[in-house]
Nucleic acid binder design. Structure first.
Length: 379
DNA sequence: TTCCGGACCG
DNA sequence: CGGTCTGGAA
């Protein structure tokens, strides 16, 4: 929502709201002297390493288009309004506000902020533009926020299956460790399966005490198979479930792996599920959970492309990497349920209902594929 | 009847 | 890459 305000910035020439994210900052102390410093802050007396008040307290990344700029900001340069909103003074530009984003910052000290915004670099001076280094940053697609907002509106008026019971609800009443395992199992079962069916399977497992690694490890595979029926591919999943339970017991003390890489080693867990589990079970956002809906819709909207081209991405993984280049991190989790529901009800794989889509005027692919019968005039 | 979907397997 | 698993919906 800070970005919604961007359109109004003409009225507020001094304070340009920006979106800021905390970023990994184990690197914070490193490379301090390697950053270019062609800002007024550089002129502060006292140089790096001398300690005291001249040591930069904040590092600010400004990014737009293909330009990335790094500045270091003194703590005293940060002003805080009574509203709690903070402003960072940037050189030769104007004042930029930032909102500290705590959601993803468990391991991130507050000193490091990541700041992006449409207005930021457009207001850099020519000299600054020349001094910044080019990066692989990608320009966010035009109007992406309007599109997202439009989809949100459509979604709030119309219920999609994904709304009622996603696997993130699994085992919400259980202790943390058991809950994580439940989320993992639910994710495994949920692929190619209606959420209601998945939910039913989870309930049956739970009622039979089979939602824990030790129980599953000792249980008969046939029993599991019959309990999770009719989720898609129940035979395979029953067998994967047994293997996963064994792995969790032997390598993770009955818990589930806590890293993306280790999750991917589990049979039946691919990138889509691994990211989902990281998001939901560990509350640790490593990447966007991209399924075919997200993949399809992002391509229809022109939100992603193969690196360096305008071609569509060919795999969900490619979509994930492309999308992550520009989508602000606070959208990484909500984008999935949003687009999945949208993809189930309106932007369907075949015959998308462009006629009733609120963002068709912003969609480069609108009406370009065979639309639903009612909306396509027959030739 | 055809299409669809995560992950895996050649 | 393209086939497979599997059941439901268009």
């Amino acid at each position: 929502m800070p970005l919604c305000l961007l359109r109004n910035t003409a009225l507020l020439p001094l304070f340009v709201p920006l979106r800021i994210q905390t970023i990994s900052s184990a690197k914070m102390p490193r490379n301090r002297s390697s950053f270019k410093r062609e800002t007024p802050f550089d002129k502060n007396p006292g140089s790096e390493g001398s300690g005291g008040s001249s040591v930069p307290e904040f590092r600010v990344f400004v990014r737009k288009k293909r330009v990335k700029k790094t500045l270091e900001v003194m703590d005293k340069e940060v002003k805080e309004e009574s509203s709690g909103k903070k402003f960072v003074k940037l050189p030769d530009i104007e004042d930029f506000s930032y909102v500290k984003d705590d959601m993803y910052s468990q391991s991130t000290p507050a000193e490091t902020v990541h700041l992006t915004g449409e207005k930021a670099l457009s207001q850099l001076t020519q000299k600054e533009m020349k001094s910044v280094s080019f990066s692989d940053s990608v320009r966010p697609p035009l109007n992406w926020e309007k599109v997202l907002e439009g989809i949100r509106k459509m979604r709030s008026s119309e219920d999609a299956p994904v709304d009622s019971m996603g696997c993130e609800k699994a085992g919400s009443s259980l202790p943390a460790k058991e809950r994580r395992f439940a989320v993992l199992v639910s994710s495994l079962l949920s692929s190619q399966t209606k959420d209601q069916v998945n939910h039913g399977a989870i309930q049956r497992l739970l009622q039979n005490g089979l939602l824990a690694p030790d129980a599953i490890d000792t249980a008969n595979e046939e029993t599991i198979k019959s309990l999770i029926y009719p989720v898609g591919f129940y035979t395979r999943k029953a067998s994967n479930l047994k293997k996963i339970a064994k792995i969790c017991l032997s390598k993770y003390d009955g818990d589930i792996p806590s890293s993306l890489e280790e999750l991917l080693l589990l049979p039946g867990i691919g990138p889509k599920m691994a990211h989902l589990v990281m998001n939901v079970a560990w509350n640790n956002v490593q990447g966007i959970c991209v399924d075919t809906h997200v993949h399809r819709i992002c391509n229809r909207l022109g939100w992603v492309s193969r690196p360096g081209t305008k071609q569509k991405t060919r795999t969900p993984e490619e979509t994930r990497e492309s999308l992550q280049l520009w989508l602000p991190k606070e959208e990484w989790v909500p984008i999935n349920p949003l687009l999945v529901g949208f993809g189930q009800t309106i932007c369907t794989p075949l015959r998308p209902r462009c006629a009733i889509c609120a963002v068709s005027d912003l969609c480069p692919s609108a009406f370009k594929e065979a639309s639903s019968p009612s909306s396509t005039p027959k030739k």
